[in-house]
Design a binder for these strands. Structure first.
Length: 506
DNA sequence: AGGGCATGCGTCC
DNA sequence: TGGACGCCCTGCCC
């Protein structure tokens, strides 16, 4: 074939599209192997980004038309190199600062923070900075904090999942305060899901609570069936999970949409039981308070942030922040001042407009306040698959304790929550929810239940339209996704899923 | 099966 | 100070 002949001796980074004319000419092949040496001048770079060449023999009206596409880097638009996936490994653009630590002079590939089992830690420059030992020691002075860190138990095996449960991506998760198997999930559309992951098929999604994304949810301290939710629609909702009926306790946009400069959004939400307050923070830096007994707004909003700036998260406990500059910061509310963090950990959790923002979370079971769970943005090549693990980090030294992933979860998992009592991790990835357990525990549970077939139960959500759902369902029977269908394929699902990897730091 | 699109935020002028 | 612009590893729908 002529086209092959033409391209064979060409520089690899310059692919050609050869449109073969309906002719038999062989004459031009040898004439193709000259010109185009790097580096090109600036103007040449531009001119040659796409170059269409007609062969000399075109005059005869028979030759192929050769369209040469000069490859340029999709990041910096310069020729000579390319950024993007090579297989499952992403090659950075060398013209940009490191994608991970944001410092110039190297790429992510060679970044010292990239070392898989040691993401590295940067002490902040503030005088308050302690070395890790000091930090742990200081923490130990606090009597309620046990002096010895418990061994970490990492839930690293997918136990069950609901796939495409929500109709939009998951934005927040919350475990029920007393019923161990109930997980709440909020989504981009403003809906709240209630899922009993012990009976995987028991799930419901309430749709009329918020009009846009749910940012945070908290259970009422006095009534387990009631949940507070803060949303970008500027409302605090109060929902009865048994019935799905909801009331609005606070509405910051009583006059509706007046443009983006006035629209209020509520992000952070937490409950201060001591003071009996529900606290919600908005995109203009104000903290709003609701008396949780009367459910009435109390007091005037307080400015807690730079005026006009968004408060993204709110926690009454040590304030842990997940920033868009790829740093997790630990703020020592006991010994440190709040002007600068006491720990800073470089970790890949870049902001991306299409993703729910990453949020690092403490393990609520770890009273020493060391274990952090956070999803990773950047992918790693795991046996040829580009996967985005969920990282467990020891905040006292910045070390990666474990990275958890499953070959079937190829999407990024920005939302993660550890169970307050059990060794269970819940994650929200795109529209799906996953429950992870440690392998040992899973085996125990399984032995007890003597259900050999149902190692992992995964089912579909109800959010798709009927037609779509059926179509999807049939796709899934044929394709790689078939671990996601719940009946008859569980053995295969198990075989695949037990390939899950965990790397644990000694 | 790949093109297109949704749509937040920092930056720059 | 505000509007326009553009974005490095998306996800999924058509």
């Amino acid at each position: 074939m002529k086209g092959m002949g033409l391209t064979r001796n060409r520089r690899k980074r310059e692919p050609e599209i050869v449109i073969a004319r309906d002719t038999d000419s062989e004459s031009s092949a040898s004439e193709e192997e000259e010109e185009d040496d790097y580096p090109l001048s600036e103007s040449e770079k531009e001119d040659e980004a796409v170059k269409i060449e007609l062969e000399k023999s075109k005059a005869k009206g028979k030759a192929p038309i050769t369209v040469k596409l000069k490859k340029v880097c999709k990041v910096c638009k310069q020729p000579g190199h390319e950024a993007g996936f090579k297989g499952a490994t992403y090659i950075d653009c060398p013209m940009k600062p490191c994608f991970l630590c944001k410092m110039p002079g190297h790429t992510t590939m060679s970044c010292s923070h990239r070392v898989v089992t040691d993401h590295g830690i940067l002490p902040t420059s503030h005088r308050n900075t302690k070395n890790p030992i000091d930090f742990v020691f200081m923490r130990q002075l606090q009597p309620r904090i046990p002096p010895i860190k418990p061994p970490y138990v990492i839930p690293d095996q997918v136990h069950c999942a609901v796939i495409r449960y929500h109709s939009r991506r998951v934005t927040c998760l919350e475990f029920h305060p007393t019923r161990n198997n109930i997980l709440l999930s909020g989504d981009k559309k403003g809906q709240i899901g209630v899922w009993d992951f012990a009976k995987v098929y028991e799930k419901s999604v309430y749709g009329d609570i918020h009009s846009v994304q749910v940012n945070n949810m908290r259970f009422s301290p006095t009534n387990d069936d009631m949940v507070y939710s803060a949303s970008s629609d500027g409302k605090v909702g109060y929902t009865d999970l048994e019935t799905g009926t909801s009331s609005t306790l606070l509405n910051l946009n009583p006059n509706g949409w007046q443009g983006p400069t006035t629209w209020n959004m509520l992000y952070g939400l937490d409950i201060n039981s001591d003071k009996g307050l529900v606290l919600a923070a908005d995109n203009f830096g104000l903290l709003h308070m609701i008396d949780h007994r009367s459910n009435n707004v109390t007091g005037e909003p307080i400015l807690i942030h730079k005026k006009g700036s968004k408060v993204v998260g709110l926690d009454c406990n040590p304030i842990l922040t997940t920033s868009q500059d790829n740093r997790i910061r630990v703020w020592d509310s006991i010994f440190g001042d709040l002007d600068s963090p006491s720990r800073e950990i470089v970790h890949s959790h870049d902001f991306n407009r299409h993703l729910t923002p990453f949020k690092a979370e403490w393990d609520p079971k770890d009273a020493s306040e060391s274990l952090i769970v956070v999803g990773r943005y950047i992918s790693e090549n795991y046996n040829g698959a580009a996967l985005h693990p969920i990282d467990f980090i020891d905040s006292s030294n910045g070390q990666l304790v474990a990275e958890v992933m499953d070959p079937n979860i190829t999407t990024i998992t920005p939302v993660n929550k550890l169970h307050p009592r059990d060794d269970v991790l819940a994650s929200g990835s795109s529209r799906s929810l996953f429950i992870w357990r440690p392998e040992e525990k899973r085996e125990m549970v399984e032995e007890k239940e003597k259900e050999k077939e149902k190692k992992i139960v995964i089912c579909y959500g109800d959010s798709n339209k009927k037609g779509k759902k059926q179509k999807r369902g049939s796709d899934d029977e044929d394709e790689d996704d078939d671990m996601f269908s719940s009946k008859g394929k569980n053995i295969k699902a198990k075989a695949k899923t037990t390939k899950s990897t965990r790397k644990t730091k000694a």
